[in-house]
Lab assay of single mutants.
Amino acid sequence: TEIRININGVTIHVRDASEELKKLIEHLLRLGADEKEIREVLHRWEK
């Protein structure tokens, strides 16, 4: 699944996002995570 996240005008594009990762990101956004925090989570997730 491919997702695009727009945070304050900055688009983060994620290829091959699992449903689990998608739910995690949606949850973090609801909690008010910023772009830097989302990128950090994505970076750690890929490892």
Rank of each mutant, 00 (worst) to 15 (best):
S18A: 08
L29T: 03
D16E: 12
T1S: 11
L24N: 06
I3R: 02
G9M: 04
H13P: 05
L21W: 03
L21A: 02
A17P: 11
E20S: 08
I5M: 05
D34C: 04
S18Q: 07
R15M: 13
A33C: 07
N8W: 02
I12C: 03
V41Y: 14
I38D: 00
W45V: 03
V14G: 02
H43R: 15
L21G: 00
L31E: 04
L21F: 07
E2M: 07
L31F: 09
K36S: 09
S18V: 06
V14Y: 05
H13V: 10
D16F: 13
I3C: 04
R30H: 05
E46R: 15
R30E: 04
E26C: 14
E37G: 07
L42T: 01
E40I: 09
K22E: 08
T1V: 13
T11V: 13
N6V: 12
R30Y: 12
L21I: 06
R30K: 10
A33V: 10
G9H: 07
R30I: 06
L24K: 09
H13Y: 11
V14D: 01
A17Q: 04
H13E: 07
T1Q: 12
R39K: 07
I3E: 03
V10F: 04
R44C: 11
D16S: 12
N6T: 11
E20Q: 08
I38M: 04
D34V: 05
E37D: 09
L24H: 09
E20C: 07
R39A: 04
I5E: 01
K22A: 11
K47Q: 15
L31M: 15
T1L: 13
R15V: 11
V41H: 05
E2F: 04
S18D: 09
N8P: 02
T1D: 09
L21K: 02
R30T: 06
L31D: 04
I38E: 00
W45P: 01
K36G: 07
K47L: 15
E2S: 09
E2I: 08
W45L: 05
H13S: 10
L28M: 13
I3T: 04
E26Q: 15
K36D: 09
E20G: 06
I12D: 01
L29V: 06
E2P: 08
T1F: 14
D34Q: 08
L21H: 01
L29Q: 03
L31H: 09
L28W: 04
L28N: 01
R39H: 13
I7K: 04
I25R: 00
E20I: 05
I7D: 02
D16H: 14
H27D: 06
L21Q: 03
I7Y: 01
I38R: 00
E26Y: 15
L24T: 11
W45C: 09
A17M: 07
I25W: 01
I5P: 01
I3F: 10
G9E: 05
G32E: 03
A33S: 05
L29R: 04
I38G: 00
L21T: 02
L42E: 00
I5R: 01
D34W: 03
H43L: 14
E40F: 11
I7W: 01
R4T: 11
E40A: 14
E26A: 15
R4L: 13
R44D: 12
I5N: 01
E20L: 09
K23G: 12
I38L: 07
N6S: 11
L21M: 05
